[in-house]
Design a protein around this nucleic acid. Sequence first.
RNA 1: GUGAGUGUAGCUCAAGGGUAGAGUGCCGGUCUGUGGAACCGGUUGUUGGGGGUUCAAAUCCCCUCACUCACCCCA
Length: 416
Amino acid sequence: MSKVNAPKGTGDLFSPQIEKWQYLEDKIRSYFSRFLYREIRTPVFEHSELFQRGIGSETEVVQKEMYTFADKAGRSLTLRPENTASVVRAAIEHNLLNDMFPLRFLYIGPMFRYEKPQKGRQRQFHQFGIEVFADGSPQVDAEVIYSAYNFLKEIDLRSISVEVNSVGCDVCRPGFLEQLQTAAREKKDALCVECQRKTDTNPLRIFDCKNEKCIDTSNSFPKITAHLCEECAVHFDQVKAALQILQVEYKINPRMVRGLDYYTKTTFEIISGQLGAQNAVLGGGRYDNLIKDLGGPDMVGIGFAAGMERIILHLQEVELEPRKKILVAYQNPEIQDAALGLCETLWRSGVHAYMEYSAKNLKKQFKKGDKLSANYTFILGEEEAQNNTISVKDMSSREQITIKQEELAQWLKKNI
RNA sequence: GUGAGUGUAGCUCAAGGGUAGAGUGCCGGUCUGUGGAACCGGUUGUUGGGGGUUCAAAUCCCCUCACUCACCCCA
């Protein structure tokens, strides 16, 4: 029979990698509860319309990268490419925006995008993120950035930096885009073919280009930060002031462009120097219109999403406190039942115990003990069975003692 | 979607037209009440798949698939 592999861009997680994931998930939940975030779990698939309206039907993600399918009733459904639209949908659907306080959500889970896999990029990948729905104070933006930055520092991620920008709002952005487009058209000959195309379709993307000539040229183009309307400019200044108080080391990057249409005003990224081409570990921003656009009240949201694979890729080795393990060994098949009984006692006491069920001799069982890196081996032989005792061997010191069955609980308390 | 690189044992890799190999792992033995060492033996392959050239292909050619990296885009 031919074998079946996991689909392209997906993978399986098991030990020893899975321990890193469990570690990371634990840290996420405990850390963000400090800021009063509570977890939310939304469906892995949604009506396709949610993402078209939420993320923007002109975006790359919606145009080319969604796993969209029709269910048996002909509904168009899509595996979620990100979680913000879903969280907003859920908050509106359950009237949480009126009832719940504080309106702070944490999510962890798989996302799906039909992309060509490479380092730090898969078709099924995992994000955690937060969303805050509030009145739109600039301090909230700063707090969100602070919590993200500080989290990555607490899990000891090295060589990361924070980049912040403002992408303006409906008032100032359209005018700016026009100016940018005009400037790009004037310098058309100095741009690469790709950027010439972007000039018409999405001029902001020219700032992304890695071509040196394009970088030089676009340096002279108008910057969004210099063309913000009064409201956005004041807001941005207040965000920066709050970041100062929160001691976040950040850099203003007026070239930073984000791929989702819903962002307004503050946007930010945390990038890593060790990730190859996919250097963004975490990205997010504020959305003034998304909630309204999805049928909710006129309310402001801000959040971020972090790529868990990318974090795991340069997570330092996690030192997990190894749990102590006991191997239960028996001399011959006649004593096997007694060994099973002993195991049951250990399991019921919460001890990590293991026994072999078809072992021929003690030697083999000791070898298994090494493989498990068992801390102790309990030996039941004919002698022990006769005297109601257990021989206990410390696997690292090789010292062996014999205890009475009645003393077992006491021994466990002391040693495990 | 575009480009480049790589596919040989469970894993890491040799062999560049002439009998598919090594290390490691795994199983067994030396050693039936005591493990990590040592020694001895055994084990796994349609050389990713298909086609072509040739007396002969892991090796050369074509196609395809998978993986990796990069572009695009993003977490």
